[in-house]
Design a protein around this nucleic acid. Structure first.
Lengths: 187, 187
DNA sequence: ACGAAGCTTCAGAAATTTCTGAAAATACAG
DNA sequence: CTGTATTTTCAGAAATTTCTGAAGCTTCGT
């Protein structure tokens, strides 16, 4: 398992981006290697390809499995575990978005709802209103996401490829605007 | 500048979520305080409210300004800088998405395109194909995002509120599917 | 039951990120 | 120009995250 220069380049990029994506470098690199690898690989292949410790690979694979981003395979007659990435890219996209939503949105939504339940005194009137606005916004966006997420991949791809048609449709369909412009004076 | 319990709760949550959102704790807290504060605040207000160092606040504000998430204000006769958050929530959402795209997507897209330009030897045939798939996917999604982003806020809100109408429209409109199912054997 | 192959765990080492305090820059009034 | 109010910078301290090596599992063949 030696990577070509081309592969190296790809893999190192994923490692560097890792921190921006909220994953550890090795996790990103591990995923990258599996992603561009035609065959399933075992842990030792990854150790060799990336030059990191066995335990690091073990933990990285565990994390990737928890995210459903890699799948465990078994080769007949082989004792070790082999790993691949799902080959359907759209499945990967769905997983990534779902996972980010779970970690980055849902806890906040829960907290906002909890705050909304409380009886705010006069002191908190403004804060309470702001929390309400934010909650509504996030709720709107997540239900839109849920809508899209219910589309089968075929139709989702069709929608995404649709380009300006969507804009035209919205423009003609959404004529009546239930528009509430809140003015919140500041400073 | 003492925060009420209600406000504290909100602010601390934003601080904790900070790490998941790829921002430092103080940056998250600083934003949160400004977000729920009716009036513009100065740096010292924030120091007092959060109990962190002045320099930390200075750096956090700088970062938030770089992201266009807070705005500088001046009070007449006052010498210090005062800060607020934009009160249009949708502006905030647009900024956040744009900024994340810039940091998390664009560099990867650039790298993928660069890799696509190279002449891959036989060794890299599979990797090259995978890179191509990924690039196409990301390009498709970013142009879809660009579409949505061109909508004025009114229409965007209308679209988001449209619920199942969108799904119906896609289902009827996108009958002819230019479907290419790639089978990539593994393992 | 024993040993070899392979996987996981975890304490602490290494690396990275965040935060502070002191010093330096900037802006302004008199 | 001098002194004061304010913001910025930055070296290193503190905190956090990531990674390693050693030890300990688990599984399987003999």
């Amino acid at each position: 398992m030696t990577l070509t220069d081309y592969e190296q380049d790809f893999v190192l990029h994923f490692g560097e981006m890792g921190s921006r994506w909220g994953i550890a470098r090795t996790v990103g690199q591990t995923y990258a290697v599996l992603f561009i690898s035609e065959d399933a690989l075992c842990a030792d292949d990854l150790v060799e390809a990336l030059g990191v410790s066995r335990s690091n690979i073990s933990m990285s694979l565990k994390e990737l499995q928890a995210w459903s981003l890699v799948q465990l395979r078994h080769k007949p007659g082989e004792r070790r575990d082999y790993f691949t990435t799902p080959d359907d890219m759209w499945a990967i996209v769905r997983i990534l978005i779902e996972e980010r939503k779970k970690r980055e949105i849902d806890p906040t939504l829960t907290k906002l709802r909890e705050l909304q339940m409380r009886e705010p005194g006069d002191e908190n009137a403004y804060a309470h209103a702001r929390v309400g606005e934010l909650r509504e916004l996030i709720e709107g966006m997540t239900s839109f996401y849920d809508e899209l997420n219910q589309l089968e991949t075929e139709r989702l791809v069709a929608l995404i490829k649709m380009g300006s048609k969507l804009r035209k449709w919205v423009t003609t369909t959404a004529k009546v605007l239930p528009l509430k412009t809140k003015t919140t004076p500041k400073g």
